[in-house]
Design a binder for these strands. Structure first.
Length: 308
DNA sequence: TAACCGTGGTG
DNA sequence: TCACCAAGGTT
C-alpha cells in the first residue's frame, strides 16, 4: 500500500530549530522531544488520522500497541472502508469510547464513497467527517500535510494558558483565546509550524503537566506568566460524580465487551451488569443501538453490527 | 452549554 | 484510597 510512502524522520537540523516564535522552545524540543512516537515517522494522512482518533482522551502508552495492530490489519483507507463494523469495534478493544471506532470507519467510508483515493489534509474537509473536530482536523493538516495551521489540544492549551495568560489550568482559559494565541505564534512555513506544534505539545505532556509541573527544567520558565505570578492555584474542579462502576458508561462498556466475544441473549447481558436490572439493560441497549454499536438479532439476541 | 461517551494510570 | 487526568467530539 502507500503507507510507507511518506515515512521519514522528523527534520532535526540546526536550521529548523535555530529560531522560533517561543524563545527556548525549539532548542529544548530538539533534545527532549518525543521524536520516537511511531506516528511521527509518517506523513500519510490516513496513518496520522488513525493515531489522532485513538489519542482522543486516551494515553499514548495505550495507543501505541493498538495503533500498530490497526495499521497491520487496515493499512489504507480503502481497507478500513471495506471492513465489517463488528471487526472494527473488536479491534478497538481496550481503547474505550467505542463510538470513535465506528466514526473512524464512517469517515473512511464517506471518503471512499465520494471518490477519494486517500485521506485529505484540508482541515475544512476533514472537519465535515464524523468524529473529526477542530483539533483532529488541524492535527492531520499540520502533522501529515505540513500545512501551516495552529493546533490546540489539552497539552498545547495548558502551555499557552500558563505561559501567556498566567492561568494554572487550561479549563480557566477560553478556547477561542487559545486558538487565537496558537495562530499568532505559528511559524509561517508548514514544516516549521509542524515542529512548533509538536514541540508545544511535548512540553505540555512532559514538563508543563497538569499536576506537578517541572518548572525547574522548563525552557520557557523565565518568561512564563504563571510561574512569575507565583503559580496561582487554578479554580476548583468539577463536582464529584458517582462511582464509575455505577455509571451507564461502565455498563455500556461491559455490554460491548461481551458482544465482542459473540452474540448474547438479553438475559445474559442483564446478568453481567453490576446490579442486574432488565429496565436499565433495555435502556442501555436502546442507546447503544441508536449509536450503531449493537444490533438486534434473532430470538432476542444481540450482536455487534456486521456480526448478524 | 453542560452532559455524555470507556478505560486505565497516577500522585 | 480516590479524585483527577488522558493528542476530544457530539448533542
Amino acid at each position: 500500500m502507500t503507507r510507507g510512502k511518506g515515512v521519514r524522520r522528523p527534520p532535526q537540523t540546526r536550521a529548523a530549530h535555530a529560531s522560533g516564535t517561543v524563545p527556548g522552545l525549539m532548542d529544548w524540543y530538539r533534545d527532549s522531544g518525543r521524536h520516537s512516537l511511531p506516528w511521527r515517522f509518517s506523513r500519510d494522512p490516513y496513518v496520522v488520522l488513525v493515531s489522532e482518533v485513538m489519542l482522543q482522551q486516551t494515553q499514548v502508552s495505550r495507543v501505541i500497541p493498538a495503533y500498530g495492530a490497526w495499521l497491520v490489519r487496515w493499512p489504507h483507507v480503502f481497507c478500513l472502508a471495506a471492513a465489517s463494523q463488528g471487526d472494527v469495534i473488536r479491534q478497538w478493544s481496550g481503547l474505550g469510547y467505542n463510538r470513535r471506532a465506528l466514526n473512524l470507519q464512517r469517515a473512511a467510508s464517506a471518503l471512499v464513497a465520494a471518490g477519494a483515493e486517500s485521506v485529505p489534509v484540508d482541515p475544512a474537509i476533514l472537519i465535515t467527517l464524523p468524529g473529526i473536530g477542530r483539533y483532529t482536523a488541524a492535527a492531520v493538516a499540520s502533522f501529515a500535510g505540513e500545512m501551516p495551521v495552529p493546533v490546540v489540544d489539552t497539552n498545547i492549551g495548558r502551555v499557552l494558558a500558563r505561559r501567556y495568560l498566567g492561568l494554572g489550568s487550561v479549563r480557566d482559559a477560553s478556547p477561542s483565546r487559545l486558538w487565537q494565541l496558537a495562530a499568532e505564534l505559528l511559524p509561517a512555513a508548514g514544516p516549521a509550524a509542524r515542529e512548533h506544534n509538536l514541540a508545544l505539545m511535548d512540553l505540555g505532556a512532559t514538563l508543563c503537566r497538569s499536576a506537578a509541573p517541572s518548572c525547574g527544567s522548563c525552557p520557557v520558565a523565565s518568561s512564563c506568566s504563571w510561574l512569575l505570578a507565583g503559580r496561582p492555584v487554578p479554580t476548583a474542579g468539577t463536582s464529584v460524580g458517582p462511582r464509575f462502576e455505577t455509571t451507564d458508561r461502565f455498563a455500556r462498556g461491559r455490554i460491548i465487551d461481551a458482544l465482542r466475544r459473540g452474540p448474547h441473549s438479553f438475559d445474559s447481558l442483564v446478568a453481567l451488569l453490576p446490579s442486574p436490572h432488565s429496565a436499565q439493560t433495555g435502556r442501555l441497549l436502546s442507546g447503544l443501538e441508536q449509536d450503531g454499536l449493537v444490533v438486534r438479532a434473532v430470538r432476542g439476541f444481540w450482536t455487534l453490527p456486521g456480526d448478524d
